[in-house]
C-alpha cells in the first residue's frame, strides 16, 4: 500500500482507483483537540484544491482540501459521533472521506513519506 502526502498536511492512500483521505498525525497534533468535523456530501464531484470539509478544533477551524480530482463515494460517519477519533488515530481510523479518482496521474504530484518529512522540517 502506498501512502502519499500533501502540503496541506493530508494523507492519501490509493487502492486501485479509490483514494482514502485524512489529515496527518502532525496536523492533528498542531490542531489540538478536534471537536467537530463537517463531512463532504457523497456523490459530489471535486477538483484538486477545492475546500470540501472543515475540521473544528478547540483552537481553530481548518479547511480540508481535495488532494486530487474525483467523486466522493464514502465518508467516515463515525467522526460525526466522535471527532476525537482523528486525535487518537489520524492516519487509520480517523480517515475522513474516500474519492473515486478521475485522473490517476495526479497521484504522482503528491509527496512520498520521506518528502513529507523533509517538508515538515523546512516548514
Amino acid at each position: 500500500m502506498n501512502k502519499k502526502y500533501t502540503k496541506e498536511h493530508e494523507w492519501v492512500e490509493v487502492v486501485n482507483d479509490i483514494a482514502t483521505v485524512g489529515i496527518t498525525n502532525h496536523a492533528q497534533e498542531s490542531l489540538g483537540d478536534i471537536v467537530f468535523v463537517e463531512l463532504p456530501e457523497i456523490g459530489k464531484s471535486v477538483k484538486s484544491g477545492n475546500e470540501i470539509s472543515v475540521i473544528e478544533s478547540v483552537k481553530a477551524a481548518s479547511d480540508i482540501y481535495s488532494p486530487i480530482d474525483g467523486e466522493i463515494i464514502e465518508i467516515n460517519n463515525d467522526l460525526t459521533k466522535d471527532a476525537s477519533v482523528i486525535n487518537q488515530d489520524a492516519e487509520n481510523e480517523g480517515w475522513i472521506f474516500k474519492l473515486k479518482i478521475s485522473d490517476s496521474s495526479q497521484i504522482n504530484s503528491l509527496m512520498s513519506l520521506e518528502e513529507y518529512n523533509d517538508f515538515l522540517k523546512n516548514e
Binding site: 489540538g32 483537540d33 478547540v58 483552537k59 486525535n87
Partner: peptide
C-alpha cells in the same frame, strides 16, 4: 503553555 500533554479538553 496552552496545554500540557493530555490536551485542553482533558
Amino acid at each position: 503553555p496552552i496545554n500540557y500533554n493530555t490536551g485542553i479538553i482533558n
